[in-house]
Nucleic acid binder design. Sequence first.
DNA 1: AGCTTCACG
DNA 2: ACGTACGTGAAGCTA
Length: 884
Amino acid sequence: MDKLMLIDGNSIIYRAFFAMPPLTNSSGQQTNAVYGFTTMLLRLLEEHKPTHILVAFDAGKITFRHKGYEDYKGGREKTPPELSQQFPLLKELLTAFGIAQFELDGYEADDIIGTLSKTADEAGFNVLVVTGDKDMLQLASDHVTVGLTRKGVTEVETYGPEQIQERYGLKPLQIIDLKGLMGDTSDNIPGIPGVGEKTALKLLHQYGSVEEVLAHTDELKGKMKERVETHADDARMSKELATIYRDVTLDKQLEDVVFSGLRAETAGPALAKLEFKSLLERLSLAGEVGSAGADVEEATADVTVLDEQRISELVEVLDHVDVLHVETHGDNPHHAEIVGLIFAAAGRQFFMTMDVLQSEAGTPVREWLAAPERKKRGHDLHRTDLALHWHGIEFAGAEFDVQLAGYLLDPTDANQTLSGLAAKYGLSSIRPDDEVFGKGAKYKVPDVDVLSDHVARKAAVIEALVPVQQAELEKTEMHKLFHELEMPLSRILADMEKQGILVNVEELRGLGKEFEAQIATLVGEIYSIAGVEFNLNSPKQLGEILFDKLGLPVIKKTKTGYSTDAEVLEKLAPYHDIVQNILQYRTIAKLQSTYVEGLLKEISEKTGKVHTYFRQTVAATGRLSSQFPNLQNIPIRLEEGRKIRKVFVPSEPGWSILAADYSQIELRVLADISDDERLKEAFVHDMDIHTKTASDVFGVQAEDVDSNMRRSAKAVNFGIVYGISDYGLSQNLNITRKEAARFIDQYFDVFQGVRRYMDDIVKDAKRDGYVKTLLERRRYLPEINASNFNLRSFAERTAMNTPIQGTAADIIKLAMVQMDAALRKRSLRSRMLLQVHDELVFEVPPEEIETMKELVPTIMEAALKLSVPLKAEVSYGSNWYEAK
DNA sequence: AGCTTCACG
DNA sequence: ACGTACGTGAAGCTA
């Protein structure tokens, strides 16, 4: 049976605030009311196990009740700041718990609760209303129970019609009459002076209602008669004020308040942030994995350290390996050392070092590692794969990676280490690696007993995590995304990285020579103009020269001093010749240090190639990132830098580099998810989207769009994708905020579907606490309801941007999985080498060029069916530069 | 280690 | 009034 719990947020937090002793977190923020509220909430969850929950808050200062009676709640003390500061904390915590909350301008929490309890009652729910306010007893019915807090908030006493009868001798609705007669000083409801609970009850037991009492004043006597007659209007008005309005129009449906248990991956951190340690421990998620926690302790008790003789003990149970963990050292997985391996199998744990694995006796284990049908569960199997590969050991069959699962469950959590995951899921703790091994130069592998114990704990935690995360992935509908996209992709990425891309070193050194000469000239000129030599790479020294010595106007400041970024320098260029030289120096120096010297350092001695590492668990939107070296930011916009691309060449003679990129994928995704007719039509006809936007926004024919209009429209389109703000657009276009705001308004007037999307997605985020992509990838936005304007605005822009950027990321990932399958199926020799967000780069033998020219864009365009076509453009050449 | 700058999508 | 455009990684300087 469905059970709805409706909580009167204001009433409970108020009571909690006054009932709880002051409690402050380490940053000095008082948290006692949130703590009291949460304690009560957790107790209610355990006791009542609701399927639906809503916490209602009062909104705005003026409710419809004030319209008839201006003094309503007049006598009330102003909310103390120590309490009002706690509202945002509570709202943030509720969001993290996955509990819906709601407020509506002009209405009190009572009315929202009254309305929803009625709806739910009619829909056959059992309803529990939780409040500190006796008025709410009027809501009770056969299926609606009212819980009143007693003694602060620690206990809740529940009332149905029977209990109300027992306590007051009244029907639930007569509570309103009771209030009408006796009033309520806390809400400044007058009632009849001199009539308290006792008298009011006596009157009601005799006459039944305020109206009946007033109709029979002749039967009353003396002072009482006089009072009732003089204050008849007060009584009627008081009754009206006390009546909870049960027919508010809400855009809140019962399905919006479904509660499917505390959301473990966000509830834990949110409680930790508030420093509610005792609650963290008693939290149901700790209970949920409590037995797993015990298993961790047990599993680590028995670790067998294998040598060449004893390796057979593991070989015998290889069929039953539950978890594999390879402990590595080093940031770059291509160069990672392997400290040791641990296998959890048949309730035992087996540890070995690399020399054992690589010995003759290790052969069956190596075969097991290489067998794709032998499924592996572990942490960061992508890294494991690469590390083993460079040690001459092949790896296949990754089935469940707890790091990748942790990332999907909360992509913004930077700590996806096992130690972090263990803490988050309330498992037995793992010491941080830094502490066990030491960090940086102090890194040292400890004795084998310490080491094997440490990694055994890791294996045990992985084993405990797998079922918990699997359940969470199912609950959040991300299991398909995980098993069918991210897990397969991790193997594909590893393959691309092992393959690497060949660098023409002579060509790169040649470019380095050219840059070196240019830098020397520029530096000489700059020093001579400045009249002194200084460190050009120091923004501080450069600032002193420009602003103190040469007296140029200060355009912008940074935290630490003058800003000297390119935007500032552009504005300073007219004032002094030195500025242009500095800009040019910056450009070339960047190319030299990052792209010539940086790239040279990353070329593998073994292969002569660069083997980047695509990180699959860092970007909050679902994108990949690239490291060691970053091959996703190789210059292209300026010709000087673009030349760098010439050094990326095919690894076999006669082959070509082929690149295919999506055209306007983010705006096409926006067209699809916003369902904006105009935007969709633009893509159905494959128009130049910026020109089309300009023509629509400025109301001119497409052929009359000049370059300035197109440039503005392009900036607006970018802004839309980023989560538009007038300020951001004004900065980008160098116009005033007002003008930018006008552009945006005009844009939204034309693209009304986009406006609706932007409004709706922010609303959804405020309600759910997260946004998602077309493939159900989630991103939680805990700050979406923050009272701090900056934090909230940032979260709102993120809410707008993430579904767009994230869906585009989903699409190209799908294309990569499908591309990999197609290359295999057709036994093509072409190799996928790089992904650059909306672009895939391959090396292709000559006889496959024609095939790949067709195949790659075809697969990219069909990767996911949208309501607008996707478009991919392909080109190829003898190096990456030529593939344009 | 944190800041500033700048390369990419 | 509030002060930013979304997402990354690398290099060099400063404290």
